[in-house]
Computed example of a mutant assay.
Amino acid sequence: MKQTENKIRSKIEQLRTEVEDFVNFFQQRLDYDQMVYELWNANDILGHITFWHESFASNIFDLGNGNTPRPIKGPLSEVNILSVETTKNVSIPKFIERLKSAQIVIEKFIFIKSIKHIPYKKGSRDYSREKHLEIVSSHKIQKKRQLKPNDVLPQQYCLIILSRK
């Protein structure tokens, strides 16, 4: 059991680093309205990441308080569209605040041993605490790589198309 808790501790530290990296990137005064995908700009990616991080936080909060979690419903493609549409008018400082708040909730509840599995999305399988942290970190790493040209200079995020305002 101690081995599992040590793995969770390591994974939560990795996730904390990923969140801090996103926060640092979005505090650089770049042009976040530049398109990264055909339909998403850098700000949309932050909305998407925040949306999913809050979902994780909400589910683990409910479980930690003995309540039934309410995971996101719908096909992944529709939920991802919703993740951007519902966050279009949110400011970057507000996103950062929300992302940090969700991280605090996750860190508060992730070590509760009675939480065996955490739902990801309605219709999807639930994941162990360790596996859920792994998936969430991996998602952030993937999105982060789309916002910077390489991993050589981890503190110098920038899309090739992003420029200083």
Rank of each mutant, 00 (worst) to 15 (best):
M1H: 09
M1P: 04
T4W: 04
N6A: 15
K7F: 13
K7P: 00
I8Q: 03
R9H: 04
S10G: 04
E13K: 15
Q14C: 09
R16G: 06
T17S: 14
T17Q: 14
V19W: 11
D21G: 11
F25D: 01
F25W: 09
Q27R: 13
Q27K: 13
Q27C: 14
L30N: 05
D31I: 03
Y32H: 06
Q34K: 10
Y37K: 05
Y37G: 07
W40F: 02
N43T: 08
G47P: 00
W52D: 01
H53Q: 10
E54R: 06
F56D: 02
S58N: 06
S58V: 02
S58M: 03
N59E: 02
F61P: 00
D62P: 01
L63N: 00
I72D: 01
I72N: 00
K73V: 11
G74M: 05
L76G: 00
L76Y: 07
N80T: 01
I81F: 08
L82D: 04
V84R: 02
E85V: 14
N89M: 14
S91G: 10
I92K: 07
P93W: 13
P93C: 15
P93K: 09
I96L: 07
R98M: 08
V105D: 07
E107L: 09
F109C: 10
F111E: 12
I112V: 08
S114I: 12
S114H: 14
K116W: 08
K116A: 13
H117Q: 13
H117R: 14
I118G: 02
Y120L: 12
K121G: 05
K122F: 07
G123Y: 07
G123E: 06
S124I: 11
R125A: 14
R125H: 11
R125G: 12
E130V: 04
H132S: 09
L133F: 06
E134W: 10
V136P: 02
H139N: 02
Q142T: 12
K144N: 11
R145G: 10
Q146M: 06
P149I: 15
N150Q: 07
D151V: 09
D151W: 14
D151A: 15
V152F: 12
V152C: 07
Q155W: 11
Q155L: 09
C158F: 14
I160P: 00
L162N: 10
R164H: 08
K165H: 06
